[in-house]
Design a protein around this nucleic acid. Sequence first.
DNA 1: TTTT
DNA 2: TTTT
Lengths: 148, 148, 148, 148
Amino acid sequence: MAGVNKVILVGNLGKDPEVRHLESGSVVANLTLATTESYKDRSGNRVDNTEWHDLELWDAQAKVAEQYLRKGSQIYVEGKIKTDTWQDEQGNNRKKTKIRVISFTMLGTRQGSSDGDSGGASAPAMEKRAMPAVPDTGMDDEMDDLPF
Amino acid sequence: MAGVNKVILVGNLGKDPEVRHLESGSVVANLTLATTESYKDRSGNRVDNTEWHDLELWDAQAKVAEQYLRKGSQIYVEGKIKTDTWQDEQGNNRKKTKIRVISFTMLGTRQGSSDGDSGGASAPAMEKRAMPAVPDTGMDDEMDDLPF
Amino acid sequence: MAGVNKVILVGNLGKDPEVRHLESGSVVANLTLATTESYKDRSGNRVDNTEWHDLELWDAQAKVAEQYLRKGSQIYVEGKIKTDTWQDEQGNNRKKTKIRVISFTMLGTRQGSSDGDSGGASAPAMEKRAMPAVPDTGMDDEMDDLPF
Amino acid sequence: MAGVNKVILVGNLGKDPEVRHLESGSVVANLTLATTESYKDRSGNRVDNTEWHDLELWDAQAKVAEQYLRKGSQIYVEGKIKTDTWQDEQGNNRKKTKIRVISFTMLGTRQGSSDGDSGGASAPAMEKRAMPAVPDTGMDDEMDDLPF
DNA sequence: TTTT
DNA sequence: TTTT
């Protein structure tokens, strides 16, 4: 009965966060995160293996993501696996797996900015900002205001 | 480049392992694992939320799973997320996410058996067995043969 | 600045919880948990390696531990490392490391009891109880009432 | 019996690695890692809480640490808790807890260097180097030689 | 689609 | 002793 469903990821964002402000007042951010595993094959050649993850953040965390994360940002993520299931128009069962983020931390921003985008169309101009420290918000929905 | 892609699960098997012995000599086991989260909603009612995960194990671990795991078995799993992508007959992009198991441990079998199945059609009769201790294979010492 | 300090353990209690009810109203429980790693040495002999961990739980979790855990109970633990430092009478710097528990889950108690003790002196008689599902309480101190 | 003893840390090194090349040919590196937790107290003031961890790495990983890590380097660490026990001269039981590193990954080195030291006495001059990708050694493919 |  |  009591179970554990935990995901830990370190990787880089494939693009800027996509953020929606819902009529209910809730905020959702969707991120795509690449985790790359590097190893040598039998011939001794280096091989990179990249896995892409769909992340979903809500409310306070979504706002932090919107404000501070950009394409290329490196983050540590803790979350859980959630699979949505539905039927498509042909009546086939479909599934989509995503990571519901519980907490995240920006990495490698000693220099004061993680501006990983340099003028892409979708990226709003981003002035240099002090580095945020996004605390572990706890499990499901505890963080309800911005942590700084 | 260097990334982390780690999954930690504790849950119960939804059915007996499905094991295929490939011509290549490799062995694959597919498991379905339920992780159940329990919480109280705003009205104070207990709510159970079950997530189902598709697990894939190879070779030595697949054999251990085949021999010792059954519907209902409780296990601790460590693995990584892998998403396969392909095009279906209609030319639509499709994805399927599964957990590639790195290591697992049987839980709650101090009494010598975790026989969680009581006569299901697909389950071979399973006599009581001594409890296996499946070591973390991703830890220090690589498991390349059966660990007991 | 932003850091991660996370511990994940699965093991068995070495003795009954030691619980203190403080004047302040706080409750502290101290547990000792054994995690055993099993591997084969070079000669092919099985070797068991047991590590003992000092766990500390507060308030609601301490009460759950007091009520449901016993010597021998198998649990999944999530926490963080905390090291206390002080000077002893000789003026030497001393350190003591313990695990501050964030959440825990009882394992292997599908049958309704984790009574791992059979008559030890310090164990109160424990009638069979329904199995508790101790949910992830979130990070630091969110759980302030019993979760069931 | 079968247990889990896992530590996950993200933090910064307090000083350069201390590396010893043993007569046996083994190499040991000792690191001190700071993990800082940031939160607001009841008065709304930001509080930083830093925990210091003693890490121990062996052989290939020790060499990677020696070559690439410096005071200030930010790393992701996976390991296990190990407590040494002994008796001091007064016959008192003593314990010392450290983290035996299973794998680590350098973080935040998009700019091609993690030179966190700027001329400290103990630090050897370090020319800019290409960023290393230290694979998870405890994962799929065992690292028995330097990974690059 | 990221990162090195 | 780190980092922001």
